[in-house]
Design a binder for these strands. Sequence first.
DNA 1: CCCGGAAAGCGAAACGTTACGCTTTTCGGC
DNA 2: GCCGAAAAGCGTAACGTTTCGCTTTCCGGG
Lengths: 331, 331
Amino acid sequence: MVSYKDIQLTTGLSLATISKYFNGGNVRPANREAIDAAVAIHGYRPNAIARGLRSGKSRTVGVLLPALDNDFHLTIIASVEQRLREVNIGVVVATSPSADAATVDLLLGRRVDGIVAVPSPHDVDALSRAAGEIPVVALDWRAPGLDVDGVFLDNRAAGQLAARHLRSHGHTAALVLSPEPPLSSVAARVDGFLAELGPGGVSLAAPLSVDGARDAVASVLASVLGPTDAPTAFFAPNYELTLGALIAINESGRILGRDVSLIGFDGTDLARASRPRLTIIEQPMREIAEEAARTVLDLLQGERAPARERLLAPRLNAGASVARVTDTVTD
Amino acid sequence: MVSYKDIQLTTGLSLATISKYFNGGNVRPANREAIDAAVAIHGYRPNAIARGLRSGKSRTVGVLLPALDNDFHLTIIASVEQRLREVNIGVVVATSPSADAATVDLLLGRRVDGIVAVPSPHDVDALSRAAGEIPVVALDWRAPGLDVDGVFLDNRAAGQLAARHLRSHGHTAALVLSPEPPLSSVAARVDGFLAELGPGGVSLAAPLSVDGARDAVASVLASVLGPTDAPTAFFAPNYELTLGALIAINESGRILGRDVSLIGFDGTDLARASRPRLTIIEQPMREIAEEAARTVLDLLQGERAPARERLLAPRLNAGASVARVTDTVTD
DNA sequence: CCCGGAAAGCGAAACGTTACGCTTTTCGGC
DNA sequence: GCCGAAAAGCGTAACGTTTCGCTTTCCGGG
């Protein structure tokens, strides 16, 4: 391993001077050149580990995710990485399988300077403890009992947005897929939806998976006699549910946006490519992630304020998957 | 920062003994308990940085990606992380924006023990140099001049697979979207396709983007008079191109699998939700990533063999987006 | 040519571990 | 109770930096 020592040997300068140079201190031009030359010869590269030991900072933040299985997670990693690379801070990713409560400790052991996390129930405690030592920013799920800075989607508003869109198209009745067991962020979307839609809103229990949603929707569709009977509008308050619902509808042979209406959640690509184009509620993933990145960075730079929470607004991306209802189904 | 020293103070044991205990050495039961107690009291956590300095290993590997913008990249991170966490090795992600040739150095500065990379042209040199010091495994793109272990899709075979599928459905002519500027992995798919399909294969230049593909396909469709004239089969050798082609077809009002045929690439979700279900060539992302993870791990554990290359086979996931051609279009 | 302040350079200690080679303790067999 | 081997424990140096408080060198003004 090539170190300051090698540079010392070839330049005759002291370690202190070399270090000073590397940290922007003043060094006589001749020595400056000598050091540069020696660096080039030996291919010297500062050792971040030694630096970290000495300084107590690793210039690294941890990104903790419950799994690595969707676009949002990727966006989080990407945004945080991009923002932090600008200031030369590295990103360590860690997933926290539900079996294992030690993932946070793994990050702390690596002496990360901060953590950006999508909390899951089993690491709330560890995150709370961690928050005592380093900045922690929570994302996506407002974990009960975790009092740290956070950036979240306004889930209730998302549900309301979907309901209002249906109402404005003449729908007074609709089914909302309601995951079983519940997940608080999705549950808030369901609540917002039901509250806004009024008595016509019905919740349809389904496992939180593509196939679960497909089966649930398929069995509702099978039990409906004519295509225009009964509730023919669905709200899928999550990407997986959306995918399942869409598959079920397509498999049933019904025409989306005519026989049956659907508002999905996330999955911009899917929405664009669907036929007809799917109307979805989108959460501003990139903004959420960027806001989180900005927040850790502020905290790292010492702006220690009382834990603050930001709620970002959902957007409706309109396609043609919601039929317009007047007296009878038209179009 | 709580360290061995604190434990030394409360137990009276020497640092050497404490260290030995933490590394699985034999320690008298009484002392064992004393240490455990002290650890609990102080909330001690081994300092990976100090360990790393002393041992020269960081127990960290770098994952280098040109960008973080698709499913495959996520799968790579997920698989590598999952595999390495089993043996307590951390994962640092770094993206390498095309402006910047220093991303590899950033990883080396952090003294990663190995690198898994999807190479991009501007960091081939740096990767080559890195390979002299630590194991490097390349993924997805076989960069010319980069002589390291690699795991890739058999791109030619993927093109051939698509062509054979079209032929078996009676198609003798088809357009393949051909990215401009070329990207060698996608180009190999195009080549395989054209070679297998024979003289009926025509390449259609398009920028490597969703909108580029959409425009290219749209203009072809607009110039076709009747729905059954001329080439009505497309092969999109990449996810973005697939998405663009699908959008163009839907927007044109033509019916997929009847008026026009399409074989896409990747995007299992999209394929399932498309109506009709899309026929795609899938690369075994998870396997590729897992194989890469396994390879770094082997290399880290000293199995230093001559650089080896693995080619994984594509799969065809059949939907109903390819029409069966006999004399005239049927169905 | 000398003075003095400013600029540059220096040695040593410290960060938290681990590994080496040694000394001390333990304990079963006599 | 003693011997000796095996087990356990110990002090110290080293990993590559940065920082502290000094000392040395530089250089313009008189």
